[in-house]
């Protein structure tokens, strides 16, 4: 029968025999395989550009065997290799928080003062620092803390 297929390919069959051969090809799978194989051989011999490896059946079979995975995807991978990166991010976030706090804590209700307030008070640092246990400062504070002084002076 394979000779018939080969003859059919070469166009050597009578129309009636050819019709019979085509019907046989449709019904017999092994003949159909042979038909494909002969064409492949023919293409190979002619070094045809259309030469193709038939992987369809193989791929379809492997796909059918593959189990369907229904488990959810793991978003969190084991953490060890990423710890250093995370620490760096945490550090930069906390730095941002500190900077933001510093900026925010100096914001003022009056817009024309914002620029001035971003600078740390300078005249304080350039001046000499008074001694908190200086007897004069202490004597002043003892009296300044006395609210009754204020009340007496303006009543």
């Amino acid at each position: 029968m394979k000779e018939t297929v080969s003859a059919l390919m070469d166009g050597e069959l009578e129309p009636a025999s050819a019709r019979k051969a085509v019907t046989a090809l449709h019904s017999d799978e092994s003949l159909n395989d042979s038909w494909n194989t002969y064409h492949l051989i023919g293409d190979a011999l002619r070094a045809s550009a259309d030469l193709k490896v038939d992987v369809r059946r193989g791929v379809a079979a492997r796909l059918a065997e593959e189990p369907t995975v229904l488990a959810p995807r793991r978003w969190l991978r084991p953490v060890r290799p990423r710890t250093v990166g995370a620490a760096a991010i945490a550090a930069s976030v906390s730095l941002a928080a500190v900077v933001a706090w510093q900026q925010l804590s100096f914001t003022t209700p009056s817009a024309n003062l914002v620029a001035a307030n971003q600078a740390v008070p300078v005249q304080v640092q350039t001046g000499a620092v008074a001694d908190p246990v200086d007897p004069y400062v202490q004597a002043h504070q003892e009296m300044a803390a006395d609210q009754s002084l204020m009340a007496v002076s303006y009543r």
């Binding site: 000499a128 620092v129 008074a130 001694d131 002043h140």
Partner: peptide, 11 residues
């Protein structure tokens, strides 16, 4: 001389 304590109290 002039000095200040924490920038608030001056002497």
């Amino acid at each position: 001389r002039v000095s200040s304590l924490h920038g608030v109290i001056s002497t």
